[in-house]
């Protein structure tokens, strides 16, 4: 168990590292393009394609990060008036539903990756399309797993939620959002 918790913590750090470096690289390439053009009268041929794909990656990684605390855009009008037990069951259903939908997208995303791998088209420079598409199934798969865990924890109501998702240690907002909902 300890091993998995540590592994999970490492993966969370990796996620953070990837998001920060994706952003900084994007900023760097965008500025580099301007400098190359104005001082050296040239540019990176794949620059624009890289930037477009990196926005997708930033978006997906950001969405993944948001899923740590179930912090996605939602409407969420009514739970408060329900008794606590019903409230839990409903939360379970909602999380489970989210997990299933994400898993579906992950599955078909994987299908697309395989299809693109066979077609072997280049997205930019030496980077194939399948690699830049791969972020979609990866992110949806992890999001799906997270929502499955949320769903199970909602049923069990255990506080190991924190250890498993590792969110409490990192973000106080989670406590806030939990206690306010």
């Amino acid at each position: 168990m300890k091993f998995f918790i540590n592994l999970h913590k490492k993966l969370l750090q990796l996620e953070r590292f990837l998001l920060v470096s994706a952003f900084l690289t994007t900023l760097f390439i965008a500025v580099l393009q301007i400098i190359l053009r104005n001082i050296f009268d040239t540019g990176i041929i794949w620059g624009d394609s890289f930037l477009r794909i990196s926005v997708l990656w930033i978006g997906m990684l950001g969405a993944l990060y948001a899923s740590r605390q179930n912090n996605h855009i939602s409407i969420n009008l009514g739970v408060n008036f329900l008794p606590k037990n019903y409230f839990r069951i409903i939360k379970f259903i909602v999380h489970f539903f989210t997990a299933v939908i994400c898993m579906l997208v992950a599955w078909y995303g994987l299908h697309l990756v395989i299809m693109e791998y066979e077609y072997a088209e280049m997205a930019f420079a030496k980077i194939p399309v399948w690699l830049s598409v791969a972020i979609i199934p990866i992110v949806f798969f992890i999001m799906s797993s997270r929502y499955f865990i949320f769903a199970i924890l909602e049923l069990k109501g255990k506080s190991i939620a924190n250890e498993i998702t590792g969110v409490i240690a990192e973000n106080k907002n989670f406590i806030k959002s939990k206690s306010s909902s």
């Binding site: 053009r37 040239t42 540019g43 041929i45 794949w46 620059g47 624009d48 930019f124």
Partner: peptide
């Protein structure tokens, strides 16, 4: 942007292009 064939052609003409 990303038109690698065209870039190769221009390169063979000794032209550096702006994507």
């Amino acid at each position: 942007t990303n038109d690698i064939n065209f870039q190769k052609i221009l390169k063979s003409f000794g032209v550096t292009a702006i994507p």
